[in-house]
Design a protein around this nucleic acid. Structure first.
Lengths: 124, 124
DNA sequence: CATAAAATATTACATCTGTAATCAAAAGTC
DNA sequence: GACTTTTGATTACAGATGTAATATTTTATG
């Protein structure tokens, strides 16, 4: 199990950009976040820097600017964050957590079908 | 929708104790957390205090000591934390999140059956 | 009543986060 | 080559968090 760094809420936004497409320059990341956030480019540079420092991102000096890219996989980070959430909010109990989401949130017929087929595969 | 305060990881532990049984004195909360944590009673007192200040707990002066009790419901806090997690880690997409947990974590036959029956109820 | 014990309130302090501004270095322009 | 522009590095600063220690107030005890 790869040890992933602690990634804050704002940092997740940045990571998602780079997991979706990498490498990218700081400016490209800023452009990608321009719609979904109101952050100053300064702020985004700070986040990139912190993520590099905590080992979540790497970069390659590419001419004038850096090209940033993930140093940890999205799936590993998702796994770590999911476990942390499960432990924190549901005391680690998976089924109550799933029940919560199934009861609380809206699901389309298609989504229900997809989940049912996944459960079918699990039945062995 | 009741507005719930921001509850940190350590604070969740304390809240869970009081959601499970309330009211309780600080000492009773400390006793309840003695097994699952290594926190000093001082630390737990601090957490109780912060939770009162942020409106997550109330207390009744009961003789010599306070009796603490929740000021916000567990379900409201679970809902808020779940949405926050869903947004942060999965960009708000419910189904990928459920898929992740179904794929990643172990489920017993009973749990699978329970989830399937919940999905059955959803099919209307 | 004076003092000790117990409980709450206040203060401490380092790290993490959100949100930038300023500084420094590199590179292109005249 | 000096100056401006671009980009990364360093510094800033307040609020949240983890983790307590100290101070103060209330209560029981001798």
């Amino acid at each position: 199990m790869p040890k992933v760094p602690q990634i804050s809420e704002a940092e997740w936004e940045v990571m998602r950009v780079l997991w979706a497409r990498a490498p990218q320059t700081a400016n490209e990341v800023c452009a990608a976040l321009a719609d979904s956030t109101t952050w100053s480019p300064r702020t985004i540079k700070t986040l990139l820097n912190r993520l590099v420092n905590k080992g979540a991102l790497k970069y390659k000096p590419q001419g004038r600017a850096y090209h940033y890219l993930p140093a940890v996989s999205e799936s590993a980070c998702v796994r770590a964050a999911s476990r942390s959430f499960l432990k924190r909010v549901f005391g680690g109990a998976l089924t109550p957590m799933l029940v919560h989401f199934l009861e609380e949130e809206k699901l389309s017929a298609d989504e229900i079908a997809e989940l049912r087929s996944m459960l079918d595969e699990r039945r062995d």
